[in-house]
C-alpha cells in the first residue's frame, strides 16, 4: 500500500467530482437555503441571529450529506460500469489503494464544498452579529466528520450496488442516524429483559449521527464539553474506519465482469 498512489487516485477523483454539474446544483441550493434563514429570521419574534445560525448549520449538514450521497454512491459503481476500472487495475495498484483513493478524493471534494458553504454562512452571521464565535467553527468541523462517515457508507454501498439503490441505502443511514438517539430514551423506559437487550444491541449497531450535531449548544451558547467532543470525534473516525474496512473486504475479491 503506497500513499502516493492513493494520492494520485484521490486527486483524480477530486477532478472528476468538481467537473460534475450536480455538485454545483447542490451548492446553489445550499446557498439559497442558507440565505433563506435571513427571510425566516425576519418572520420571527426574538433573537434573529439564533434562527440564522440554526437554519444555516442545518442547511450545511443536509446539503453536505446530499453531496456525499449523490456523488459518493456513483464513484466506484461508475468506474465498474463504464469500465474505466479495467485500465486502472491493469496498472501496478492494489485494490484497497483504489478504494481509499476514491474515498479520500470525495472527502477532499466535500471539504472544499463545506468551505464554500461555511463562507456564505459565516458571512451572513457576521453581518448580523459582527462577531464570529469559534464554537460555530467547531460545529462545522463536526459536520465535516459526519460527512466523512457518510462518504464511507456511500462508497461501501457503491462497491456492490447501483447508484439509485445505494443512494436510498445511504439516505436511510443518514435518517436512521439522526433518529436513533430516541432509542436511548426507549431503552431507559423499557423493562429489563429480552426487549431491553435487543434495543441495546440495535442501538450499538445503528449509527448515532446526533453525536456530530452541535447546533443546540452553538445556537443557545451552551458550553461544549471536551469529553463529549472527544468521544464524538473518536466515534466518527472508528465508525468510518470500520465501514471502509468492510468495503475493502467486499471489493478485494470482486470480479469485474
Amino acid at each position: 500500500m503506497t500513499v502516493k498512489i492513493v494520492k494520485v487516485i484521490a486527486l483524480n477523483t477530486f477532478k472528476e467530482a468538481v467537473r460534475d454539474r450536480i455538485l454545483y446544483l447542490l451548492l446553489f441550493f445550499a446557498a439559497v437555503s442558507i440565505l433563506f434563514a435571513r427571510v425566516l429570521a425576519l418572520l420571527t419574534v426574538g433573537d434573529r441571529a439564533k434562527i440564522i445560525k440554526d437554519v444555516g448549520l442545518a442547511s450545511i449538514s443536509l446539503f453536505g450529506a446530499l453531496m456525499a450521497i449523490l456523488i459518493g454512491t456513483g464513484l466506484v459503481y461508475k468506474e465498474i460500469e463504464k469500465r474505466t476500472i479495467f485500465t486502472l487495475i491493469s496498472k501496478p495498484i492494489r485494490r484497497p489503494e483504489f478504494l481509499l483513493g476514491k474515498f479520500f478524493g470525495l472527502v477532499l471534494t466535500l471539504f472544499v464544498m463545506l468551505l464554500a458553504m461555511s463562507l456564505i454562512f459565516l458571512a451572513l452571521v457576521f453581518v448580523h452579529t459582527w462577531t464570529i464565535e469559534w464554537t460555530m467553527l467547531v460545529a462545522i468541523l463536526f459536520i465535516f466528520l459526519e460527512l466523512v462517515l457518510i462518504t464511507a457508507v456511500a462508497v461501501l454501498f457503491s462497491c456492490f450496488s447501483t447508484p439509485i439503490l445505494s443512494s436510498l441505502f445511504a439516505l436511510s443511514f443518514y435518517l436512521i442516524g439522526h433518529f436513533s438517539w430516541s432509542l436511548e430514551t426507549f431503552i431507559k423506559k423499557a423493562r429489563p429483559g429480552a426487549t431491553k437487550i435487543l434495543l441495546q444491541v440495535l442501538y450499538a449497531i445503528l449509527p448515532d449521527l446526533e453525536n456530530f450535531n452541535l447546533k443546540t449548544e452553538v445556537v443557545h451558547g451552551l458550553p461544549l464539553s471536551a469529553a463529549h467532543l472527544l468521544y464524538s470525534a473518536a466515534y466518527g473516525i472508528v465508525y468510518a474506519a470500520f465501514i471502509l474496512a468492510l468495503a475493502v473486504l467486499i471489493f478485494r475479491r470482486r470480479d469485474f465482469v
Binding site: I5, V8, I9, N12, K15, E16, R19, D20, K82, R83, T84, F86, T87, L88, S90, K91, P92, I93
Partner: peptide, 27 residues
Amino acid sequence: LGFLPENPYFYDYLTAREFLDFYGQLF
C-alpha cells in the same frame, strides 16, 4: 505491462494530456 481494453472507456472529463498524465503518475 501495458494494456488497452476493448472499446476503451476512459475518464471523459479529462483531456488527453491529463488522462495520460494520470496514468504516468500511477507508475
